[in-house]
Design a protein around this nucleic acid. Structure first.
Lengths: 130, 130
DNA sequence: CATCCACCTTCCAACGGTTGGAAGGTCAAT
DNA sequence: ATTGACCTTCCAACCGTTGGAAGGTGGATG
């Protein structure tokens, strides 16, 4: 399988596949005589694994670990679970941050006329030191 | 006021102040004879405005607009309000995304022993095409 | 006056994750 | 023989921030 087909199969862009290889997320692909990268079904499987991990918000660093754990059949599930829960915690912190911002901005926007007049509580807030 | 003092006053790092100037977020600072940037209280005020806007999650592009609107006394509050509400909407989308990921991962983690055994529903999920 | 230190200057590069382009090689079909 | 679809590598961009290197300036000390 050449990279284009592996891309189609896995749903991961060919460019991105090369990138993942270059940063060591996935193993270096075997090469054909002409120098083309060759992929097996197992390789495609890894790519799908990476894609799914990205969709769950893991960083590339975390994914590197996850791929390692996945391929190591003697891993402890504790390690995976801790990685996942740490990630969940980070996402929850991010959510909290965003919600705070949304709350503040919604409040400010509610008190803003939103017409052709220039006075605007949003700008007033931004311009105020706290 | 030199850049260090302006940084302390505004809470914006000196390095970041230069960066903001270079990308046109804030006007080019006046210079002393030796070439040092000089800042007024008004400049510090702009820096605080930018800082506060960042804290509310606005992108630099949006902040550029906001600074422009703030300094333009004949602006319409509608424009500011729309900018703010568009930003709120984006943040709410992001929150939704994150919540979906958290929900999925929490569910997977709950079914994971989290001990020394290797079998792990989290990895199984990641390895499954959908 | 010399020296020291804290400050300032510019320029260049890195982080993460992805995407784009340029310039060129390879392979199959027309 | 030429086209066109694919592949290769390398380099740069996005965003916002931070870091370092290499050098100039200002004011206080010895």
């Amino acid at each position: 399988m050449k990279i284009g087909e592996a891309a189609k199969e896995s749903g991961v862009n060919a460019k991105l596949i090369r990138h993942y290889e270059s940063i060591g997320i996935i193993p270096k692909a075997a090469r054909s005589e002409a120098g083309y990268r060759k992929y097996s079904e197992a390789d495609v499987h890894i790519l799908k694994f990476v894609k799914r991990s990205r969709a769950l918000g893991f960083s590339m660093k975390e994914i590197k670990k996850l791929v390692g754990l996945w391929r190591n059949k003697s891993r402890a599930s504790l390690e995976v679970k801790n990685l996942a829960l740490k990630h969940v915690e980070e996402m929850e912190n991010k959510i909290q941050e965003l919600q705070d911002m949304v709350r503040t901005l919604r409040h400010l926007a509610k008190n803003c006329h939103g017409d052709s007049r220039p006075d605007c509580p949003i700008l007033e807030d931004l311009a105020t030191s706290r």
